[in-house]
Design a protein around this nucleic acid. Structure first.
Length: 567
RNA sequence: CGGGGCGUAGCGCAGUCUGGUAGCGCACUUGACUGGGGGUCAAGUGGUCAGAGGUUCAAAUCCUCUCGUCCCGACCA
């Protein structure tokens, strides 16, 4: 490709709505262009990158025996009503009517459609297992689109759906997909980790997420420092800590006028938050109130809490007016002594002795509280987020926490959709059974942002070779004035094309500094520079985007030198 | 949905408080010089100041409403 035939739309300054480095660089390098909130056009150079990512995904998916197909973006409401998700999904599902006033939605995912296809064409266990995938545009009307294509409303996703006669077969394909995902992310040159995940609203049993490690990641990932344990913080478990110590202090009232927060209580009473508890009130399933108790320095894990018996799922914090009416105090003064509603206590809080808590009266707190002596029977549970330093749930090592960008997610769905949509096959024994399903997603466009988050410097993007928009850039100095440079550069360009190198020759009438800066901003991995001074002695200059040093090589060997680098 | 910010040329911004000729840098066009790290000089192009209504002799500027956009929170396959 010649620069003069292409669109190089680099800019010095990114728009001020670009917050994170990948978003800024994608705008500055001219990969994307914003159309509206969460909607981006991919300019020619951005599309080249997408196509390279897709190629790797296709190759590995095909290798896993998955079959590519393509389903519609627009989907009829009937399908979603059948799976009950028309009601469950909420405003993230973009709904609209056609000219006949029939309800439709833009597909945020395709379980319903693929299940319909499977229902139609898969009749016998002999056709199973089978795994369909597509690479296609999804639309989710995100509450808050942000970070460019990292969390956009419209995005490209590879989604796969497998069908099985039983759970065993599903488990086998799940393992194959786990390995396939590792192969894909390896080839994409990403620093990533598979982690245990909550399966969320999609339902099902077993689930792993694949996270690219990056400071800007929206998820917290927990690792053991001494084993392979890794889990999303939503899912990472904490362990019971045994019986608390025997009481040493008497139960006493402390006056705490106007004090509401844990910080204020602890400052006033000169204790550590680790010796206090906080009591959160949530809605129960019968319009009742339920107390969740955490150590003062810990955070509630809403995913875990929503799964407790009698607690409304999804979790809903109680209104303060309702709390005031039923418990007689405001949020900051709730405590566990004489609290007459169901109480779930986090393991760490249940392990405390002689602690501080609210008294269920404003402006007073209890000190010297002890569970056995001062509170009614409680249920100890795992309801908090793990923190760095917690013991790993597998008993080996301690937990470390890092940030991650979710680029892949695999689920074992079981029969959730085949059941509600009546997708069955005839088994070996001649009886109809619901098919087990798995589903497997990769965020194609998010991968590009994630890769840039991991690979950049003060000059711009440093693309891994596998997804770089070009493998090589030729920068001729004085191309438009020096006929000798032009002849050599053109020859080199033709030779590269002959070797199937994805090469860009910068034949613009620009000063060298601009061409260097653009090639670095775009993250092209290899660069050859031709000038009159080099031409004099039959040399050419090579520079890798990864290394600061330039090297001189013989002009005649330049192409084979690059071919070697690309292998 | 709640709280906050912003909206002036393609991009980054000043001007708004205190009403009176719409500006700067980058980019873009033309020319000259220059030619290995975003160069210099000169001359240009480009704006319903987000939109609507109001106050006023006069509104980018004051008032009201609407829209867009970003941040924080709640939400999230």
């Amino acid at each position: 490709m010649k620069s003069s035939d292409f669109l190089i739309s680099t800019v010095k300054e990114a728009p001020n709505d670009a917050q994170i480095i990948s978003h800024q660089l994608m705008i500055r390098a001219g990969l994307i262009s914003k159309l509206a909130s969460g909607l981006y056009s991919y300019l020619p150079i951005g599309l080249k990158i997408i196509q390279k990512v897709e190629k790797i995904i296709r190759q590995e998916m095909n290798k896993s025996k998955a079959l590519e197909l393509l389903m519609p973006v627009a989907q009829p409401a009937e399908l979603w009503q059948e799976s009950k998700r028309w009601e469950e999904y909420g405003p993230e599902l973009l709904r609209f009517k056609d000219r006949h006033e029939r309800d439709f939605c833009m597909g945020p995912t395709h379980e319903e459609v693929i299940t319909t296809i499977a229902k139609q064409y898969i009749r016998s266990y002999k056709q199973l297992p089978i795994n369909f995938y597509q690479i296609q545009t999804k639309f989710r009307d995100e509450i808050r689109p942000r970070f460019g294509v990292m969390r956009s409303r419209e995005f490209i996703m590879k989604d796969a759906y497998s069908f099985h006669i039983d759970k065993k077969s599903l488990g086998e394909t799940y393992q194959v997909m786990h390995q396939t995902y590792c192969n894909i992310f390896d080839r994409l040159g990403l620093d990533y980790r598979p982690v245990l995940a909550d399966s969320g609203a999609i339902g099902g049993d077993s689930s792993h997420e694949f996270h690219v490690l990056a400071e800007s990641g929206e998820d917290a990932i927990c690792f053991s420092d001494d084993s392979s344990y890794a889990a999303n913080i939503e899912r990472a478990e904490t362990l019971p800590q045994g019986e608390p110590n025997a009481p040493k202090q008497e139960l006493e009232i402390a006056h705490t006028p106007g004090v509401k927060t844990i910080d204020d209580v602890c400052n006033l009473l000169k204790i550590s938050p680790k010796k206090s508890i906080k009591t959160l009130i949530v809605e129960g399933t019968d319009d009742n109130l339920i107390a969740l108790v955490l150590r003062g320095d810990h955070e509630l894990n809403e995913v875990k809490a929503a799964k407790l018996d009698g607690v409304k799922n999804p979790l809903q914090m109680a209104e303060e007016t309702k709390v005031l009416k039923q418990l007689g105090c405001s949020f900051g003064s709730i405590g566990v002594v004489n609290l007459d509603i169901p109480i779930f206590v986090d393991y760490a809080a249940a392990h405390l002795s002689d602690f501080v808590c609210g008294s269920n009266k404003d402006d007073e707190h209890y000190i010297g509280v002890n569970w056995q002596r001062d509170s009614k029977k409680i249920v100890a549970s795992d309801i908090r987020n793990v923190v760095a330093g917690d013991p790993s749930p597998d008993g080996k090592g301690k937990i470390e926490i890092k940030r991650g960008i979710e680029v892949g997610h695999i689920f074992q769905l079981g029969t959730k959709y085949s059941d509600s949509m009546n997708a069955n096959v005839i088994g070996e024994d001649g009886r109809a059974v619901y098919m087990n399903m798995g589903c497997y997603g990769i965020g194609v466009t998010r991968i590009i942002a994630a890769s840039i988050e991991q690979n950049n410097d003060d000059r711009g993007i440093i693309f891994p070779q596998a997804i770089a928009p070009f493998e090589l850039v030729i920068v001729p100095i004085n191309y438009n004035k020096s006929s000798r440079v032009k002849a050599l550069a053109d020859q080199l360009y033709m030779d590269c094309i002959e070797q199937n190198i994805d090469v860009l020759i910068d034949d613009r009438k620009e000063r060298p500094g601009i061409m260097f800066a653009d090639s670095e901003l775009l993250g092209i991995p290899h660069r050859l520079v031709i000038s009159d001074t080099h031409a004099d002695n039959g040399k050419i200059e090579y520079k890798s985007r990864m290394h600061p040093d330039k090297v001189e090589i013989d002009f005649k060997e330049a192409v084979s030198f690059i071919v070697d680098k690309l292998d």
